[in-house]
Amino acid sequence: MSNDQDQWTTVDRYFTDLLAPDDEALTAALDASRAAGLPEIAVAPNQGKLLNLLVRTHGAKRVLEIGTLGGYSTIWMARALPADGRLITLEYSPVHADVARSNIARAGLDKIVDVLTGPALDLLPVLEEEAAGPFDFVFIDADKVNNPHYVSWALKLSRPGTVIVVDNVVRGGKIATAHPDDPAVTGTREMFDLIAREPRLDATAVQTVGSKGYDGLLLARVTD
């Protein structure tokens, strides 16, 4: 497995160096997050570039992110927005949120990005009450136990055509375990069951390997 991981990381580095090279703001965001003791679980650079391309290709103007961490993925997506775009990102930890705000401001994106602090399941009803949506694009990368709730809220705050991306859905292959003993896997399986039953969502999921190991993502589109 270690040899496989070395190869996956080498290939990711090749792709990144050519197609998604780091710049000052992105590198500083990772460095500041590391210095603050945040877990090193941000998306890989090529995954960040994928989010950027998805937002741009979709022509999204309003983006919702559930799970900010240090704002690395936030920066990638916010850079894809037009001048009148807006990105709202939800972060449970006040420490993480403060780091993210600093990173986002350093990247010059604080005018179009709002970092809200608190449990997402408390903040999402407030966004609904304030008519903050509908959002054109939703990225979910938070605690996996609540994945089904996050997808349900994403659907409430969406419109026909909204794209929803959920990260870390393969769980090292454990997602195929019928009776997992990991709450993160259980929550993610419940999310898949919900999406499979939901007629308003058309979705697929793909497995990935890379510098972040073996995992994958779900891509869904709101149809009605």
Results as ranks from 00 to 15, higher is better:
D12P: 01
H96V: 04
R106F: 15
R189C: 01
T204N: 15
R221H: 15
F192R: 01
D122L: 05
G70P: 02
T208M: 05
E190I: 04
V126D: 15
L38H: 00
L81F: 07
V138G: 02
T223Y: 09
V222H: 04
A83K: 10
T68V: 00
M77Y: 01
V55F: 05
D17R: 14
E129D: 10
R13Q: 13
R13Y: 08
D114V: 09
W153C: 02
Q207L: 15
K156W: 11
L81M: 02
D193C: 00
N46L: 10
V55P: 00
T177E: 13
R62E: 05
L18R: 11
M1N: 12
N3I: 10
A184G: 06
K174N: 06
I75C: 00
L155R: 09
V145T: 12
L18T: 11
V126N: 09
Y92S: 07
L127R: 12
Q47G: 01
P148C: 04
Q207I: 15
Y14H: 11
V43Y: 01
T10S: 14
R189Q: 14
P39T: 05
L19M: 09
Y72S: 03
Y92P: 00
E91G: 04
A32L: 01
E91C: 02
D4Y: 15
A44R: 00
Y92F: 10
T117E: 13
F135D: 10
K174C: 03
T68R: 00
T162N: 01
R200S: 10
D31I: 08
A42V: 15
I140W: 07
K111R: 14
Y72C: 04
P125H: 11
A105C: 07
L69D: 07
K212G: 14
E24A: 15
G108Y: 06
V170Q: 07
L124W: 03
P119Y: 11
Q5L: 14
H58K: 06
H58P: 04
V55I: 01
S73W: 06
V138W: 02
L124Q: 06
Y214P: 05
D181W: 03
T57V: 14
G161R: 07
R200D: 12
V169D: 04
G71L: 03
I112H: 11
P160F: 09
I164E: 00
H149I: 12
P39Q: 02
R200W: 12
F135E: 10
L51N: 01
A132E: 14
A20C: 08
D31T: 11
L81H: 06
